[in-house]
């Protein structure tokens, strides 16, 4: 951040009165003076900060972050609704309890992942949907971990 107060007569230090080319000094000073804004300087000048960027906040790693769209109601209990925008980070480890994008039989599904002694389970957040226990022979993989969902009200 640039800390700058327009009240200081900073320009004149660029060339001094003892400068061999005094004419240049006066001319330059006149030019610089013209650039100094009139009126009171803003008291907030010293406090200007970068505006909040959702992009930076929601996207940890640009290389590994993708967006997906939700279709269905099975994740309502965790606040994920039909039509929501999912922020998916492929770099995050798929630990037990996190919401993941899983590939089951060639299709994307969003569910909560649980590591149990009997193997991996995909759990919905809706009373009508039963747990899905992953069988060893099943075509299954974790595509990425859902880090955020964006819901429009």
């Amino acid at each position: 951040m640039q800390l700058h107060s327009s009240r200081r007569a900073a320009p004149s230090v660029l060339l001094s009165m003892t400068h061999p080319n005094r004419e240049l000094f006066y001319r330059q000073r006149a030019l610089l003076r013209r650039a100094v804004p009139a009126g009171f300087p803003s008291p907030a000048d010293d406090y200007v900060e970068q505006r909040i960027s959702l992009d930076e906040h929601l996207i940890g790693r640009r290389e590994s972050t993708f967006f997906m769209r939700v279709a269905g109601e099975s994740m309502r209990g965790l606040g994920i609704f039909d039509g929501d925008l999912l922020v998916v980070d492929r770099a995050l480890p798929a630990t037990s309890g996190c919401v993941v994008i899983a590939v089951v039989d060639g299709e994307f599904t969003v569910k909560q992942l649980l590591h149990t002694p009997e193997g991996q389970v995909l759990r919905a957040a809706h009373p009508d949907y039963a747990d899905m226990r992953i069988k060893p022979e099943q075509d299954f993989s974790i595509w990425g971990v859902v880090s955020w969902n964006v819901h429009k009200h």
């Binding site: 993708f66 967006f67 997906m68 769209r69 939700v70 279709a71 269905g72 109601e73 099975s74 994740m75 994920i80 039909d82 925008l85 999912l86 994008i101 299709e107 994307f108 599904t109 969003v110 569910k111 919905a124």
Partner: peptide
Amino acid sequence: RYTTELTELAVAKA
């Protein structure tokens, strides 16, 4: 265009 158009995102079933 899964990564460059908001209207063409991949769909995750819930």
